[in-house]
């Protein structure tokens, strides 16, 4: 683990440069330690695959002192049992897949096999970024590896489920994007001040048909949706 200065008011903690659950667990464990132990004078924390950026108020924290504190917390975190991960079960309608033909051609899989493989594995949320609430999840089975689209779409519809490389994610809002669209999620990815995903979450998708998709949408609109069910 290395700690580097990043401008005047932030420290970058870096682990081995690799995408692996064991490394990422150390990132979110240190994040949890900082949040519970050092609330005062910490201005922001940005976790990523194998790094954590910690912003601080220079009026409260001296850089050397915070560096030492972060080292100490990382050691404490590694001694403890890892922070329990939340597991989210997210419905996906794979019938709403604008790139179905292209993905079948690229992977050589028929659609039911693709759906089975995409929804079988439990993914890890490595980081949020690109758009508010957009979770980078991985890793896909290598057989599902598809390149980005040659021509990015000007507007990907909100709640589209997308893949590229060994990553998958859900567009929280309409935005330009180049990932392959393989389904749509009836659950909003964020509400006014609440985000569905956070770094470290475990996520598994389950297929729903058009009718079930509409039912969930209606329940959410009518505020009768059982949000606890997704954490089942």
């Amino acid at each position: 683990m290395k700690i580097k200065p990043f401008g005047e008011a932030a420290l970058l903690v870096e682990w081995e440069a690799t995408i692996a659950p064991e490394i990422h667990q150390q990132v979110v464990d240190l994040q949890a330690q900082i949040t519970s132990q050092l609330a005062n004078g910490i201005t922001f924390i940005i976790p990523a695959y194998c790094s954590l950026l910690v912003g601080f108020d220079p009026a409260i924290w001296e850089r050397q002192l915070l560096t030492a504190q972060l080292r100490h917390l990382a050691e404490v975190a590694s001694d403890r049992i890892a922070k329990p991960t939340r597991k989210l079960h997210i419905p996906v309608c794979y019938e709403q897949a604008p790139d179905r033909e292209e993905v079948m051609a690229l992977t050589g899989l028929d659609w039911s096999t693709f759906v089975e493989m995409h929804s079988r594995k439990t993914y890890r949320v490595y980081m949020l970024g690109f758009l508010p609430g957009f979770a980078y999840m991985g890793s896909l089975a290598p057989a599902l590896n598809c390149p980005r689209k040659r021509e990015p779409r000007a507007a990907v519809p909100a709640q589209s489920v997308a893949i590229t490389g060994l990553q998958t994610g859900i567009y929280p809002m309409a935005a330009p994007g180049g990932w392959q669209l393989v389904g749509r999620c009836p659950i909003p990815i964020f509400s006014a001040d609440d985000f569905l995903f956070q770094a470290g979450d475990a996520v598994q998708f389950y297929p729903v048909n058009e009718q079930e998709f509409k039912d969930i949408e209606q329940k959410i609109e009518g505020q009768t949706f059982n949000w606890e069910a997704i954490y089942g």
């Binding site: 990043f6 401008g7 932030a10 970058l12 870096e14 440069a17 690799t18 995408i19 940005i46 990523a48 695959y49 194998c50 790094s51 954590l52 950026l53 912003g55 980081m127 970024g129 980078y136």
Partner: peptide, 11 residues
């Protein structure tokens, strides 16, 4: 090639 990581205004 770099694995994505945090950026800030001014980076």
């Amino acid at each position: 090639e770099m694995i994505s990581s945090a950026v800030l205004p001014g980076t």
